[in-house]
Amino acid sequence: MLCDHFCQAEGMYLQHLSLRYFRNYVEQQVKFQAPKIILVGENAQGKSNLLEAVEWLAGLSSHRTGRDRDLIQTNQPQALIQAEMVRASGSLELGAILRQSGRRSLLVNGELVARSLDFLGHLNAVQFSSLDLDLVRGGPTERRAWLDRVLTQLEPIYAHLWQTYHQILRQRNALLKQILNQATDASQLPLWNQQLATAGVRLMRRRHRLIERLGPLAQAWQEKISDHRENLALNYGANVTAATQAPEDLWQAFMEKIQARTVTEQIQGTTLVGPHRDDVELLINDSPARQYGSQGQQRTLVLALKLAELELIEAVIGESPLLLLDDVLAELDLHRQNQLLGTIENRFQTIITTTHLGAFDPAWLSSAQVMTVKAGLVSPTPP
């Protein structure tokens, strides 16, 4: 089978995916038998939903929605995602039960795991969709979410640290609202300031380290794809800055800034200091890509970021992650398509969605498994 050579390589390999009541899939079994899989079909048939299920297993979240209940079919109490895969360490089975209530059950090799931390890291995947153009064109929220998704895969503990910070943030915001409405005084605020700073520093240091590692990789890809015409720089636009990245320096800078903004925060009833207000500055030839980058430059930038993400995850975990390409070939010109498809080869198991097969040359198609998706049903494509 096409899998034989690939499965011996240092990469994870998805063999089987089961879905029940997930998005528009009632009951679906999909067997993956090649390093390159193409899902072809018209729009709104379920191609992206299948990739979304794999993405969810990798990060316990979807870039399309923040709520599990959006993934469950209407009038159904729960949805099921199940995957069988092979890694360098051996065979692995992952399962997830999503419920309308928001409560999840996560299984590794048939055993329930108590913490998300024990589930994350078993499957690594990089998703690239047309929505990723918002990394350049959108606001800071999209770029923060991207950083958080990458960090969750590199360091599963990050998901716990992120959750802790946002829990403290919600409680501090609730207190600021009470102060604004004169329902309480500000005596409790110093305690919450310290907790927010401690949790915030943990996120900021990891984000800064990620940008330091990702930046040179993305720069190299931007140069290569643009034939050395474009220079890309990534800067971490931290809301709190210090002379060094040492925890004590960052904590002190955080506390000083939050104390300086105390009056404004109490007037507005919300927290104005912390990593929830960070951004990533993307510069092409020293100019902000969002305002001054051409459409082609912006697309090259996003492609460079995704290829850098693949490279970094592979280097950190020691195995090639899965690559999920959701209808992006249509967004790229022929040169960028060739750069992307040439980079993939058989290095990453790749699942690609498309509305037609015209973008692929015959050699690429001959080594791929092609399946048709129609109305939530996946079937082999006739030769």
Rank of each mutant, 00 (worst) to 15 (best):
G59M: 10
L60K: 03
S62E: 07
H63E: 10
R64Q: 08
G66N: 11
G66R: 10
R67C: 01
Q73V: 04
T74H: 13
N75A: 15
Q82F: 08
M85D: 04
V86D: 07
S89D: 14
S89Y: 05
G90T: 08
L92S: 08
L94Q: 11
I97L: 15
L98I: 11
L98E: 12
Q100W: 01
Q100L: 06
S101Q: 09
R104L: 13
R104W: 14
R104Q: 15
G110I: 09
E111C: 09
V113N: 04
V113S: 06
L117F: 10
L120E: 05
H122K: 11
L123W: 08
A125L: 01
F128V: 02
F128R: 00
S130W: 01
S130Q: 12
D132Y: 00
V136Q: 02
G138P: 12
P140E: 04
E142T: 08
E142G: 11
A145F: 00
A145Y: 00
A145H: 03
A145T: 02
W146F: 14
D148V: 05
D148H: 10
D148E: 13
R149L: 03
V150G: 05
T152V: 14
Q153A: 04
E155Y: 13
E155L: 13
P156H: 03
I157H: 03
H160Q: 11
H160F: 03
L161T: 10
W162F: 15
Y165A: 04
I168Q: 07
L169T: 11
R170L: 08
Q171R: 12
R172P: 01
N173Q: 11
A174F: 09
L176V: 02
Q178P: 03
I179F: 07
L180T: 07
L180R: 15
N181V: 00
Q182Y: 07
T184Y: 02
D185I: 08
S187L: 11
Q188K: 14
L189G: 09
P190N: 03
L191M: 08
N193P: 04
L196E: 04
T198C: 04
G200E: 07
V201M: 10
V201A: 12
